[in-house]
């Protein structure tokens, strides 16, 4: 393909010098990230650091202002719409809310990509859908509507749909947000099991430190548009940086202050009284 560029072939995603602004605010400023094939890689950071935006940049939903984003050796900035769609057939994406089609059953949701991209006979589609649902433990829920599912079940169905076309890379956007501990444990196990058994590369965006540490091989910590730390969960746990310690241990105050920048407290109160 015309947009294929040279990179380390062992890297599924390679981002160099990424810059991205929203209005006046710089979301990413010369960000560099490499994601190795076959690994479960987490991208962590406080809310509002642009983790989901980064995921959207990697999947071509959003274009970077500057810098190079290579996914499977293809430069995202130079892909045509058809090339982007061809690349996305190798990707699975798990949205935070599942993004299931609310007017279709669980079965039809999982069958959707198969019906759109293949001309397989109905009997084969049925087998594939049931196998994918079995993998996430929801074969028995095939006839339910999305409205009848709990948050955790909806995410598992979305996961079954994301792996329906046997992708090479799977992106998880906040997969643990808002789940009860049991559902969280299920999702953690599924991410690991699917990654290893299907030979995937998994990229997780999350701020749930414990769950991410349980499942990821390596994590990037991003803040203020840059990577502030990178390593295995153990390495991050032992990191000396005050910021990393604050984030990993969930401390209320530290380099990230408890208070949003504001004028002097006493001066503001007295000023209001005078006014």
């Amino acid at each position: 393909m015309a947009s294929a560029e040279r990179n380390n072939n062992n890297n599924v995603v390679e981002i160099t010098g990424l810059r991205y602004r929203v209005g006046e605010k710089a979301i990413f400023d010369r960000l560099n990230i490499s994601i190795q094939r076959g690994k479960v890689i987490a991208i962590m950071g406080p809310s509002g650091t642009g983790k989901t935006t980064l995921l959207r940049i990697m999947t071509g939903q959003v274009l970077a202002d500057r810098g190079r984003v290579l996914v499977e050796s293809q430069n995202m900035a130079r892909l045509t719409a058809d090339e982007l769609y061809a690349l996305r057939r190798q990707m699975g994406f798990l949205f935070q809310n599942g993004a299931l089609f609310t007017d279709s059953t669980v079965y039809e949701n999982v069958a959707f990509p198969l019906r759109e991209h293949t001309r397989l006979p109905e009997s084969l589609i049925r087998h594939i859908v049931l196998m994918k649902l079995q993998a996430v433990g929801l074969r028995g829920a095939a006839d339910l509507m999305p409205g009848e599912l709990s948050g955790g079940m909806a995410r598992r169905v979305a996961l079954a749909r994301a792996i329906a076309m046997d992708p090479k890379i799977i992106f998880y956007d906040e997969p643990f947000a808002g789940l009860d501990p049991i559902s969280m444990g299920v999702i953690v196990r599924l991410i690991r099991r699917l990654n290893d058994s299907l030979g995937l590369t998994s990229i997780i965006v999350s701020h749930d430190v414990d769950e991410v540490s349980a499942v990821s091989d390596q994590s990037y910590l991003i803040s203020n548009g840059k990577v502030v730390a990178y390593g295995t969960p153990r390495e991050l746990e032992q990191n000396k940086s005050a910021w990393v310690r604050q984030f990993m241990k969930g401390l209320a105050d530290g380099p990230v202050p408890f208070h949003y920048p504001a004028p002097d407290y006493a001066a503001q109160l007295l000023g209001e009284e005078r006014a």
Binding site: Y85, R89, A99
Partner: peptide
Amino acid sequence: ATEQIAGMEMMAVDPVRR
């Protein structure tokens, strides 16, 4: 609003067509 359109795009299905 519920990201179903974005979901379709991520499944390489053009939502305008579908």
